[in-house]
Design a protein around this nucleic acid. Structure first.
Length: 266
DNA sequence: CACGAGACCTGTTCGC
DNA sequence: TGCGAACAGGTCTCGT
């Protein structure tokens, strides 16, 4: 489930539960979940760390500890939640951090794509990311210039986290539909007007996602409801909410891409 | 530099 | 009913 709004929702939910707690023990149940450091170092270093802050950068959860930052990327199927420490580990639990106060932070990830970093220099992991779409720096002027510095198809470029950080497959399709831009349009063909529409659409759709607590699909459920308001994503063959034309699905950069052939003309 | 294919994983749904 | 294919919110690496 994890694009920017889903990760933001998780961060907001965990913040009051985690802040001020101390990590007593780490149960790493799938070692490849750990991107760095080594298992041995991780277990030594994380024990006794106090949780100072819980934040988000792009699709990463950023948990500030006394001496390190723990970064978590949920990738396709990861989930992060609290559970009573006395409960038995569940099938897809990959990392369980036992905290003071009787609860544990659980990283559960069916597909094992998710990763955890423990580092004193989070910039080593986050340094190449593009701007936050909800930050002040993400202006239509910046976007227009950045689009013209590349010659790429719009959709893959928006998914590129070094270009702009936080959009995934759902929110990209939704933003392009709101902005009335074709997913295959060349980035350097976008006018100032269109860049303004796209900048506004990206911010609007991300804010809507956050307001609706993200999108919950399939077996991963966190109480989000944005999935009930998709305009085009996963709606191929259904009518466009704007003009009624049938939504089409194509493959772009090996990702399913949904758009209205009438609203989003090339 | 831009792009496509394949890899990493497990689980569900679809088509015959 | 059974069984293989297709597909899933992401990103990395390699080859052209």
């Amino acid at each position: 489930m994890p694009e920017l709004p889903e990760v933001e929702t998780i961060a907001r939910k965990l913040k009051p539960e985690l802040t001020g707690k101390t990590i007593i023990d780490a149960d790493l149940r799938w070692s490849r979940t750990l991107a760095s450091p080594s298992v041995k170092k991780f277990k030594e270093q994380i024990k006794g760390q106090k949780i100072l802050r819980v934040g988000r950068r792009a699709k990463y959860l950023d948990i500030s500890l006394s001496e390190f930052n723990m970064l978590v990327h949920l990738r396709m199927s990861g989930d992060l939640f609290m559970r009573e420490s006395k409960f038995e580990p569940q099938k897809h639990d990959r990392l369980i951090l036992k905290l003071t106060g009787g609860k544990s932070l659980v990283f559960n990830d069916t597909r094992k794509f998710g990763r955890v970093w423990l580092t004193a220099n989070p910039e080593n992991v986050l340094g190449k990311l593009g701007p936050e779409p909800l930050s002040r720096g993400f202006t239509s002027q910046w976007l227009h210039t950045a689009l013209h510095n590349k010659h790429r198809q719009l959709k893959p470029l928006l998914l590129d986290q070094t270009f702009l950080a936080g959009l995934g497959n759902i929110y990209t399709d939704e933003a392009l539909h709101i902005a009335k831009l074709h997913p295959l349009a060349a980035s350097d063909s976008i006018t100032v007007e269109q860049a303004r529409a796209l900048q506004d659409a990206v911010r609007r759709v991300l804010k809507e996602g956050i307001r609706r607590n993200g999108a919950s699909i399939d077996w991963v459920y966190r109480g989000g409801e944005f999935q009930n308001h998709f305009r085009v994503y996963d709606r191929d063959g259904k009518p466009c909410p704007v003009c009624g034309t049938k939504i089409e699905r194509i493959i772009v950069g090996q990702r399913s891409t949904h758009y209205c052939p009438n609203c989003q003309m090339r």
